[in-house]
Nucleic acid binder design. Structure first.
Lengths: 200, 200, 200, 200
DNA sequence: AATGAATGAGCTTTCATTCAT
DNA sequence: CATGAATGAAAGCTCATTCAT
């Protein structure tokens, strides 16, 4: 039953996972300066590995962004879906969803900035786009159910999703620019707004 | 029907303004591939000028993006503010605003994509940031007035603005990705959603 | 018939000889920044002519330096040779020579700097080298005569010339660098030194 | 017999020092064509390294000339000062000095040409100018002592230095142009001339 | 005749990638 | 495996020269 029982034994000499170090370094730099604006040797330096080492873990710079994009998008998707109250009513589900992305935004601002900046970039490959779709799908299902339950406006689920996710993203961006404090308080207010935007 | 739509938009003596040609070429390429992802000679080729010519009109590649950013941001701001019904009630003003950005989004998708992609980029200079602020200001005023008139929720105007602009941007982005048709119809529905998000 | 038609036409509005203006501008810039370090449009700007105008007077940038080199070298040669006291004894001739180059150095520091910097440059053509030789010749004759008169050491006239001209050039250069004041006084002292260097 | 002349000057493990190779290549090219007349890829080709490699060792082309200038100027200074007979009388010291620069001129004509051509160039930095001064200083001291000893004319040491160094440079330049053979013989004659130029 | 906007070859410099160690 | 020095293709930019006006 307990998933945790399978946890890998972490040795005292924690293996300095270079792959992760590279991804972490790339995350910060790509989020800050963009893909084309970031030199591979800079990523290497930040990750404290040799420049050549990056090419032992990733075929190319493009492969690196794609791996990173997939890692982050999946982490975001997991954060939302994990323990999702499938049996709760739509409003409670929406609250759960908003709460999760709020927590995520507060805990992982760089990751969110990276995902936003590289969204739909021409160098993202088929796998990255597939991950994108997979993460999107649950939201689609939620909106369809909520519409069927006549709790949410009978509009294209895509439109509803775009509005809500866009509003959330607008909030996060404004906060990143210092126009707005991103507090649990303000996030709660924003949730109410968004719910009223979509509720029937 | 808008009477103005029939007016000729091209002057008889169509001056082959190279500066404009360069900006237009840069707009498309920067919107598609980003600033660092676009080589200057590519801009020159698209603009049908020599590579050196770009440097007769712009000091550097950075100066070019900044000029372009300012041109497009100001055009967007003008499109919203022009003939704004300052004496109408908030709901009508909101409708005017939404209508204007809708028309703009439909007529200028590339311009909008460019502005979104280069928003708050580190290579934007003080002037570009000042233009950004200037274009933002009217929205701030609108929300304050609407709050005072007790028509809109008494929240931070910045938060309200971020939600609405974010929602609109989400819509446009989803449409660009082909997830959604961007029709006058869907835009009208989205407007209602957004109004309900912010109204008291 | 107009009587004036025969007179040299020095109009009140002195003809703005563009060729001279270009040469003068090039002189200053080449002396300061060297041939390859000076852009042709910069010369045009300093000469207050259009960039294209330079190419109406000179076939190329190289043709310009060569014309300038020849003008300045010949002017220097003329300044030395003009009214040269061919019948005076060697010491008096040497004094005359030294006096002339001293006057020249004080009156034309930029010209001298230009000649020194472009001496034997690979872009100087056959004509420039011929002018160089022609200007050098009288010195050669002087030294030969002085040697025959047993007034000067019986050494290779070239060697004597190289020493004296080198010493003078060293003086001028030190003065240009501010290490030394270039006064009639110090020039006279230097003359004595140089004479003692070569006299028998 | 000098014992040191038998010592091997090349270490067994001859390190293919790329930095030195670049400096050596730059020396030849800068001496021949000047700083602005020499393209970096040409230096790379002559040094048998990739063009990018130069920028691993030198921040810029300017940094390269400066490093080279300092290397050569210091080598020249060391060649003069090394084993200088500080306790000998001025005439012997002068002979030592002249002998050293003669040997240097015969062994390192390209180095001397480089130093002469780039003397006081506008792209030389503060360090280069400081090295220049440091190398100049001993000569200044020599002249002051010789003047105090009433062996040399009581003139500005700078003037004396400028004359002697200028004369030597004139000689070297004339030799480079093929006007003169630069033999130990002619150098010795020139030394006598220069001594008589400055001696009391 | 004079101009200066326009050009593109060629400059200095960067950087994704390789490979000897 | 890991490295980082080395590379050369390609970037941003300059400038000698041309040519429509």
């Amino acid at each position: 039953m307990n998933v945790h029982s399978m946890l890998p034994t972490v040795t005292p000499h924690e293996k300095p996972d270079k792959r992760e170090a590279i991804l972490d370094a790339a995350l910060e730099l790509f989020a800050e300066r963009g893909f084309h604006g970031t030199a591979v040797p800079l990523v290497a330096e930040r990750a404290k590995v040799g420049a050549g080492t990056i090419y032992r873990y990733f075929e190319s710079k493009e492969a690196l962004v794609n791996a990173l994009y997939q890692r982050e998008k999946q982490a975001l998707g997991a954060a939302i879906v994990d323990a999702f109250p499938f049996d709760s009513p739509p409003r409670a589900q929406f609250h759960f969803f908003w709460d999760r992305i709020s927590v995520y935004a507060l805990a992982h601002p760089t990751e969110l900035a990276f995902l936003e900046l590289h969204h739909h970039a021409p160098y993202l490959d088929a796998t990255s786009r597939a991950v994108e779709e997979a993460v999107l799908a649950p939201a689609f299902v939620f909106f369809q159910n909520a519409i069927e339950a006549q709790v949410v406006k009978p509009l294209d689920p895509m439109l509803l999703g775009a509005l809500v996710w866009g509003a959330f993203t607008g909030l996060v961006r404004a906060a990143r620019e210092g126009r707005l404090p991103l507090t649990p308080e303000s996030l709660l207010r924003a949730e109410e707004c968004c719910w009223e935007a979509i509720r029937r």
